[in-house]
Amino acid sequence: MVVVTPGTALEDLVIPPISRTTLALFAGASGDHHPIHIDLDVAKSAGLDDVFAHGMLSMAYLARLLTNAFPIEKIRSYKVRFAAITPVHGRPTCTGRVREVQDVGGERQATLDLTVTLADGTVTLAGEAVVAVD
């Protein structure tokens, strides 16, 4: 558990380079079988040089940052905007910081700013989560 006050940073989550195997496993596990993430022929037919990672894979990594820091049942909402594509072999790092803590309907809730950034500095996801805190 982290001490939750505005400005508190969660421990960064550094992800190893995303492999094609990971994309295949994630397709099956997530139920997203869209071929553009797993079939180079389809990616090329769409004018791309290669397949790219599912946005939801990065959102799942970022959710690990949340469940590492807070009990899963305390997460009230979680949303992201997908700002850039994550290429194969991309190395995402997930970061989070408490923006504010307030009482909402008798519950103390923290709002967190969340980001996924690649090694070259590209921000791929930006979002926020609301979690109940003690």
Partner: peptide, 17 residues
């Protein structure tokens, strides 16, 4: 055309486990 799809935003509101 599904190849033209990108994921723009995604939001979850949790009510129950």
């Amino acid at each position: 055309d599904p190849r033209a799809l990108l994921h723009g935003e995604q939001e979850f509101t949790y009510h129950q486990m």
